[in-house]
């Protein structure tokens, strides 16, 4: 069951990712990205992290993608067109050569014996909201406070950047 979930959701995630790169329009790319995030949520479920799976759907596939699609809608005309210039040859090589090298290294390093199952079993409530919250608000409470400052700065920064009349005072 876990193997099926991994291969199915992994295929969805990878194909969605490839779809983002090869999509002709930004809207199709965004839809592929949603697919990829849903596959990722399934993988979280397979990794006994149900809380993360739910958050992945809510935050990524929900909120962040709505933001993306909203901006695509705002910028409709030029963004929707396919790119006019083709990628330059050296740019493509710069991306593809390291990718091929890394994939080849993984393929050489990875004979079948290096793919054992997980070595440990986890408790029944692993990844449920309660243990995650205990960790987040226990050991990592300082990081939690810092990340809330990051969110606040991002919110104020986005408001300051995106206002339309730069020379007028804040209202």
């Amino acid at each position: 069951m876990e193997a099926f979930l991994f291969y199915f959701c992994g295929a969805v995630m990878l194909l969605g990712a490839i779809g983002v790169v090869i999509a002709r329009s930004a809207v199709m790319g965004a839809c592929s990205l949603i697919l990829s995030f849903l596959g990722s949520a399934g993988l979280f479920a397979a990794l006994s992290a149900p809380f993360l799976a739910v958050l992945q759907v809510l935050v990524y596939a929900g909120a962040i993608m709505v933001l993306f699609l909203f901006v695509i809608m705002m910028l409709e005309g030029p963004v929707m067109e396919t790119e006019t210039s083709r990628p330059k040859l050296w740019t493509t090589l710069m991306a593809l050569v390291p990718a091929v090298i890394i994939l080849a290294a993984v393929a050489i390093w990875l004979p079948a014996g290096r793919l054992p199952g997980f070595t440990s079993s986890v408790p029944e409530d692993f990844g449920q909201p309660m243990p995650v919250a205990a960790k987040l608000l226990g050991d990592y409470v300082f990081a939690f406070e810092i990340i809330s400052v990051v969110m606040l700065v991002a919110m104020v920064g986005a408001l300051a950047l995106a206002r339309s009349k730069r020379n007028q005072p804040w209202t």
């Binding site: 990878l14 983002v20 790169v21 740019t91």
Partner: peptide
């Protein structure tokens, strides 16, 4: 998935797709 994202970031010229 990381490599797909990396290749996409380099070869796509649409800034919105690069963010994705």
């Amino acid at each position: 998935v990381f490599l797909v994202g990396m290749v996409g970031f380099v070869i796509r010229r649409n800034t919105l797709v690069m963010l994705m």
